[in-house]
Nucleic acid binder design. Structure first.
Lengths: 210, 210
DNA sequence: AAAAAATCCCCCGTATTGGGGTATACCGAT
DNA sequence: ATCGGTATACCCCAATACGGGGGATTTTTT
């Protein structure tokens, strides 16, 4: 490979070992350069204005401002930057939130190191790199209807209902008041135009809202 | 499309509106022709000898001889005819009985009309068209635990419960008394060692009884 | 014939449900 | 700065569903 302008990277990751490891790994690769690395989003937001990297590796489990919340903030100051999420937990909600908020890729930290480089290359080329298990979650969620009239909270509650849970159980489990659950259910019924749990479940399943 | 020999169809369905609707729909489609339609199996068995259709659309909920019982009789006189079942209830037992007795496809009446035509085409081509929800039932049953402590009836009822149905709804739908449903549920709870719908569903799902 | 499964019946007390309002606090978009 | 949407919480009510306690009968399987 010839020596051209390197792909610039910034790492935001609180674990020092991982941070240094990635920095070393990427800098050791031709045509890749780590401009800076940060242990938290607050510092990163300040420094990023000068760094202006092409790609950001962003840990999802961060102290203070969480990785997911950081995405819109970063996109706000650097709209053209590609963001690759790093995570240990492949939680569906996180994956989905990150991708809809503008993350380009999603890797688990257990992915081997060559994959990280490949992923950076891939996002720069307009791709969407992600681990197999992440991809599976995404595919599954694509089967879910994107334009559900239900809010996140309502969907959560309807899912509990579909599991046979009573209002009070749902309330306990979600740490909210029974009355709040009732309110949500009322709204669910109105939105789905139904008058019972049974019909709500049926309607939601038919339309892949749940 | 050129005009070739049409695919011939016979409809056996007691609801006149549906019968006429399907007849009209199919006849309006190029290369498809409804030879005859019957409101019951008895009449159909007489007429079919002359009709000799390639495909039969057979309602599962029929007065007199039920659709499922009709399958072997039809297959006896017209062994090469493809049979597509039509149903409003996607009851697991029916699906299985029908498929093992020789039905080629299985559609719910709520499927949109183009699907019916597609399905006819598909069986003629040797396929096995079925609605998504039907297919799900088939696939699911392949994964089911064979050594469930629950009887067939109990499993059926527990599945209804898992769909959020109340006892009375279950009773109505299964054409049995509310008290019978209660008895079954009592037995289910005892067998699964639980004391609520929620726990019963959870336990049953964990062990793939449903 | 015996066992298992499916059906139906009565009683009881408590919990849940669906629906009617109303209200607050928060947040993002205009 | 305001507005709509979201999430939260509270009150009241009648109707229903629920879980558990006794049975009993018929049909199907073994």
């Amino acid at each position: 490979m010839e020596n051209k302008t390197p792909i610039t990277v910034v790492i935001i990751e609180d674990d020092e070992t991982i941070r240094n490891g990635f920095t070393y790994l990427i800098n050791a690769t031709e045509n890749y350069k780590v401009l800076n690395s940060y242990s938290n989003v607050e510092d990163a937001l300040v420094g990023l204005v000068n760094d202006k990297p092409q790609v950001i590796l962003l840990d999802i489990e961060l102290p203070g401002i969480k990785g997911i919340e950081a995405i819109p903030k970063i996109k706000h100051i650097l709209p053209k930057t590609y963001i690759i999420m790093l995570t240990v937990y492949d939680n569906e909600d996180n994956v989905f939130n990150a991708l809809t908020k503008g993350a380009s890729g999603y890797l688990t930290k257990s992915d081997n190191t060559e994959k990280i480089i490949d992923a950076i290359q891939e996002v720069v080329n307009g791709g969407a790199p992600m681990s197999m298990n992440i991809a599976k979650i995404v595919i599954k969620s694509f089967h879910k209807n994107q334009n559900s009239p239900l809010t996140k909270r309502e969907t959560e509650i309807l899912e509990q209902i579909a599991n046979g849970k009573s209002r009070s159980k749902i309330a306990k489990q979600m740490f909210i008041d029974l009355e709040t659950v009732k309110s949500h259910i009322k709204n669910i019924y109105i939105k789905l135009n139904v008058h019972s749990r049974e019909d709500a479940i049926k309607e939601a399943k038919n339309n892949k809202y749940i």
